[in-house]
Design a binder for these strands. Structure first.
Length: 423
RNA sequence: GGAGAGAUGGCAGAGUGGUUGAAUGCGGCGGUCUUGAAAACCGUUGAAACCCGUAAGGGUUUCCGGGGGUUCGAAUCCCUCUCUCUCCGCCA
């Protein structure tokens, strides 16, 4: 969420920039401003009454010691009246604060100046294309390859859980493990610290990174314990630093974790959910960075090139896409997607989404750093990206590397899989 | 799951109704000393909101795990939730 102060001091900027996200903020900011003025008034009034009460309460203390019972009784009576007023004002202040908060929560993050206008994914800008040439070919799609080589059993998944919960078998399972290990090793090499976080998080944590209240329907919820299954390691990983004031020189903090991810994907349908394209449980290695505001965009570029380097090492056709305002998520200021091309499906598959959230998550999480010069506390910037999500990478590897005799494993993975061909 | 104990500032740890936002120690920061460092000594050191001020700064309020209550007054008393520790039970 945006900071109240920033929001009101930069009204025009906020309104005009949010237009890129196709969000009209004008009215809501005005409402917030009115509420905030009211809030200030009420608080000032309340503080005065509280001051009076405190002074008198102290006075009673001394009078009691001096045994001046009469004076004490009159003072008490007087204070009882003030107390009633205070209670009313306190309630009012709380309500106003809640109203303001509710309204701010409805405002998405401001897009970075470089974000292009646009309605949806077709308006995204292709920054770069690389890897082998992406030429469509009448090859078998991965869901058929999975069956043919007995490495992915979708039916078994349906039987034991339901659609979107594939079962990986033998070399299929090993390939998953190999990819996870490879991605983690690369990330560690890159200076990320490896974590194994919980896969269930509480409400406050889900709020911190922005999954709540905006994406409540996307998460699986354990009603009985009021916990959520993580949709991405971003959630537990970033929240490790919830309610923290860091020293400036601790930044950047670079974290990585492999976790399974759980997504309900309500409303998805058709070709996009075939096979591994969109599933309810999948594996992903995530990278998270907490960074100084001055360096966060440089950091974002570094993260993108890092993820790019992984895709290159797997020898997959890829492209880097900059999301337009309409495709940008509620919480993001700037996002790059990395997509790999599936020759068999003749389509680009998103395998990574790398974003700078600026202070949007940090404000919700109360994550700050102490500025060395001024000694003042400022919100950190948070960033994250997939590095990488497995299912579509697996799909692309299977589909693009198939030949008459089976499927070739990318060179770099062979030390991890222990085999070079799936047949 | 049952019984008991506890939760205080970055950390350790006092404080059980009246200038306590909180002793003391450690740590951090600044300084003196030193060629430099260490040691020693001196000073300083939580967060947020509001008011006054262009600012520097000054003032007020709230916050002692979360929420609620008693009281003129709560870190201190009561209720409730969460978490931690000890013992028992269960168990990969």
């Amino acid at each position: 969420m945006l900071q109240l102060k920033f929001l009101l001091e930069n009204k025009d900027i906020v309104v005009s920039r949010l237009k890129i996200k196709n969000f009209n903020a004008e009215n809501i900011i005005e409402e917030i401003e009115t509420l905030n003025n009211k809030r200030k008034k009420v608080q000032t009034e309340l503080n005065k009454l509280q001051e009076e009460t405190n002074k008198n309460a102290r006075l009673i203390g001394t009078l009691v010691k001096e045994n001046k019972t009469k004076e004490v009784e009159t003072l008490k009576l007087n204070l009882t009246n003030i107390k009633e007023k205070i209670q009313i004002l306190e309630k009012e202040l709380k309500n106003i604060e809640k109203d303001i908060n509710d309204k701010i929560l409805q405002i998405p993050n401001i897009p970075h100046l470089s974000v292009p206008a646009g309605k949806g994914s077709t308006d995204n800008i292709i920054i770069k294309t690389g890897g082998p040439e992406p030429k469509p070919n009448n090859l078998l799609p991965h869901w058929e390859l999975g069956k043919k080589y007995k490495i992915i059993d979708f039916e078994a998944g349906v039987k034991i859980t339901g659609g979107g919960f594939p079962v990986y078998v033998e070399k299929g399972a090993k390939l998953q493990r190999a990819l996870v290990s490879y991605f983690l090793d690369k990330a560690i090499e890159q200076g990320f610290k490896e974590y194994i976080p919980p896969y269930l998080v509480n409400e406050n944590t889900a709020f911190g990174t922005g999954q709540l209240p905006d994406k409540e329907g996307q998460m699986y919820k354990i009603e009985e314990d009021n916990l959520y299954l993580i949709p991405t390691a971003e959630v537990p990983l970033t929240n490790i630093y919830k309610n923290t004031i860091l020293n400036e020189d601790e930044l950047p903090i670079k974290l990585t974790a492999y976790t399974p991810c759980f997504r309900r994907e309500a409303g998805s349908y058709g070709q996009n959910v075939r096979g591994l394209n969109r599933i309810h449980q999948f594996d992903k290695v995530e990278i998270v960075v907490i960074e100084h505001p001055d360096r966060s965009y440089k950091q974002l570029e570094d993260m993108v090139s890092y993820v790019e380097s992984i895709v290159i090492s797997l020898n997959l056709p890829y492209r880097i896409v900059k999301l337009c305002g309409g495709d940008l998520s509620f919480t993001s200021a700037l996002t790059y997607d990395i997509e790999v091309f599936s020759m068999a499906q003749n389509q680009w598959l998103e395998v990574s989404s790398i974003s700078n959230f600026e202070t949007f998550q940090a404000n919700r999480m109360n994550l700050k750093y102490k500025d060395k010069k001024t000694g003042k506390n400022f919100l950190c910037h948070t960033l994250n990206g997939s590095a990488l999500a497995l299912p579509r990478i697996v799909a692309a590897i299977l589909e693009n590397n198939q030949f008459e005799g089976g499927i070739k494993i990318p060179e770099i993975l062979i030390p991890y899989t222990g085999f070079s061909i799936i047949d």
